[in-house]
Design a binder for these strands. Structure first.
Lengths: 160, 160
DNA sequence: TCCAAAGTGTAGCCTTGGCTACAAATCGCT
DNA sequence: AGCGATTTGTAGCCAAGGCTACACTTTGGA
């Protein structure tokens, strides 16, 4: 399946790093950054679920799997599977046919997420992003906003 | 451009509450937002690879799988698998043991991604985020920045 | 020249997060 | 009370994106 005998038509004699005598340690930093972005992405779903469940409980009184699924735009089976994962993570409690509730940890997470969401949306609007786009983009961006950045956002908004 | 999953076109025929007279926050809107954030996430990796490959080609002359892997902080096997996917998507060309090169589409993508990255980092710094955090957070956030938001960022930076 | 090291590729495994299809439980209405 | 509709749960499938282990090429140095 691999090619028949690749010919050495490609002389690349020079070694890039030979002339890199000065500081080169750029890779670890970048790798770390990418890694962090990857892990942030991993918790994003959990955060969204926690926030939504809190929302449903606050407004409607109950958070049912189908409601969650519809709001998130996924099938109910997917929602149920994710709820199981939330349960494993200790963020919610749920008994069959009885709805979903947040644990204390889940509540705390939901609160943090919601606050962060608001700040991000506010900041986007403050720099001139239309509300519609601000809401849309914040949904994805917020999960990558570190505490440091969040604090800077708050400062900026207050000082404005 | 990148349509990873053949979306079976959500057969969400139901207009849930026909008799919900009072303001129920529209679920379709929220579902759409979450869905978009999800798909944005899907293309994020491809974007990162394209940008990195462009960077390596520009500075070192060649983009080898191990270099890519090291810079991204993943195993070389993972990098190779992803490169295969990039190939499937028509963003790069690569022959065994010969390095990776960008197609025209890949080049275009890399250019867009890089420009966006710069704007996002600039914006973050402009609102007071320390450089270190700005770089870190931009890495994750940029993939969720829509054209509309990007334009607003540029405007804000210019008008500052 | 030739052999070991470095780089590359393949195979298999895992988890996430989607989906559909089907089964079981609960609800709501007559 | 009973039955159909809705909701919930389960099972099985898929692709993406990780990993390790192993095999194969290329390259470079003795």
């Amino acid at each position: 399946m691999i090619s028949p005998r690749p010919q050495p038509d490609h002389p690349q004699p020079d070694h890039p790093e030979s002339d890199h005598n000065d500081a080169m340690p750029e890779e670890p930093t970048q790798a770390r950054r990418f890694g962090k972005a990857r892990t942030a992405q991993a918790s994003a779903l959990l955060e969204d679920y926690a926030e939504l469940i809190a929302d449903l409980l606050a407004s409607g009184g109950e958070a049912r799997p189908t409601d969650i699924a519809r709001r998130l735009g996924v099938s109910h089976a997917t929602a149920i599977k994710t709820i199981a994962r939330l349960k494993r993570e200790g963020l919610v409690t749920a008994r069959p046919y009885r709805g979903v509730f947040l644990t204390e940890a889940g509540e705390a997470l939901a609160g943090r997420v919601k606050a962060r969401h608001l700040v991000v949306v506010e900041l986007l609007r403050a720099v001139g992003v239309p509300s519609e786009a601000a809401e849309q983009d914040a949904e994805g961006m917020e999960h990558h906003v570190s505490d440091t950045t969040l604090a800077a956002f708050s400062r900026f908004l207050k000082a404005r």
